[in-house]
Write a protein that binds this DNA or RNA. Structure first.
Lengths: 156, 156
DNA sequence: TTATCTGCAAAGCCTTTGCACTTAG
DNA sequence: CTAAGTGCAAAGGCTTTGCAGATAA
C-alpha cells in the first residue's frame, strides 16, 4: 500500500511503524501482551480511510485472518483508542464508529444529514475560542467534539 | 410547580402551554392522535432539569401514571424531538440522553470526564465561526453539537 | 367508525463476558 | 511456567416491534 505525503510528494510504503511502536509500548507498559491478532486489527484499522464500526472492522480483518473473533476486535479497538491512535465517534441514529489519526491532524466533522457523508474540517480560531470558553468556566480542557449538521454541496 | 424567570424574578406557574401547543399541532399535522400518556410524558420531560435516558423518563412518568409502558416512552420521546422540543445527546460510554429546550436557549456542553457533570455554555463568536466554516465548505448548516471534555472546577 | 395508540412480551441489535484452550514473555 | 489473549457462544443492555384490545377524532 502506498500513499502521498502532503508535504513532500514522496511516495512511500506505509509501514505504520511509528503507530505500531506506540501500540507496542502501550501494551507493554500496562503489563499486557502483544499478539498477531492485535497487530492485524491495528494495521487494518489504520489502513482504512473510513469511519468504521467495530463490526465492519471485524469483517475487514477477517479477510486477512479468517479465524479472528468479533470479541477480539471489540477488545482491541478499545486498546487502540486508549493508547491515543484513534477515537470513538457517536453519530446520531447510528452505532459507534471509530476513526484513526494516521495522517490526520485533529479535526472536526461536517455531517450531511442527507447522504450521511462525513467531511473533516479544522478551524484554528474556533479551537482557540473553545480553549478560552473552557478556561472561563474553570474547566481544564482535555478535548472536544464538534459536529456540524447540514446539507452538503452535492445534496443541495 | 413553580419557577423563577431569570429576567424578571417573577414567580409563575409552569403550564408549558406553548410547548403543549407545539406538540399538539405537530401531532395533528402529521395525522396522528393525541393521548393522555403522550401529554404526561411531555410534561414530565419538560419539568425535569436533567439529561434523562428514556428509561429514567419512563420511571418518572410511572410515578404519575403507573400503568404506562416503556415502549410508549420510547415512541413519544422521538416525537418530542421530531417536533423540536428536545434533542438527543450521545455522550461517550453512556446511552442516549435527552434534553428539552424549555427555558433553555441553544447551548453547547462542557462535560466533566471525572464526575460526569454536564454544564451548558454558549459562545456567540464560536457560533458565528461555525456558520462561516460551514458556508466555506459549501454546507447548508442545520445545526451543530459541541461538547468540550475536561475536568470541572470541583474535580480539579 | 376506523385509524392510531397502548401495554405487554418477544425479538433484535450491538456489545460484553465466562470459559476452556492457546500463547507470549 | 504463568498470566494474559483468543474464539466461541451465551448473556446483557437498550431499543424496537408485533399484537390484540382500547381510544381519539
Amino acid at each position: 500500500m502506498r500513499c502521498y505525503h502532503d508535504n513532500d510528494y514522496h511516495i512511500q510504503i506505509m509501514t505504520f511503524q511509528k503507530e505500531i511502536d506506540i501500540f507496542d509500548y502501550f501494551i507493554m507498559s500496562k503489563g499486557l501482551k502483544q499478539s498477531g491478532q492485535r497487530r492485524d486489527i491495528l494495521k487494518t484499522f489504520l489502513k482504512t480511510e473510513k469511519h468504521l464500526t467495530a463490526d465492519e472492522l471485524f469483517r475487514l480483518v477477517k479477510k486477512k485472518n479468517p479465524s479472528i473473533g468479533v470479541a477480539t476486535v471489540y477488545r482491541t479497538i478499545k486498546l487502540i483508542c486508549d493508547c491515543g491512535l484513534g477515537r470513538e465517534l457517536r453519530l446520531d441514529n447510528d452505532s459507534v464508529r471509530y476513526e484513526h489519526f494516521f495522517n490526520h491532524d485533529h479535526h472536526d466533522h461536517l455531517y450531511c444529514t442527507d447522504c450521511g457523508e462525513l467531511t473533516e474540517v479544522v478551524d484554528r480560531e474556533i479551537e482557540k475560542l473553545q480553549q478560552k470558553l473552557a478556561k472561563k468556566a474553570g474547566f481544564k480542557m482535555q478535548g472536544h467534539r464538534l459536529i456540524i449538521h447540514g446539507i452538503c454541496r452535492k445534496c443541495s
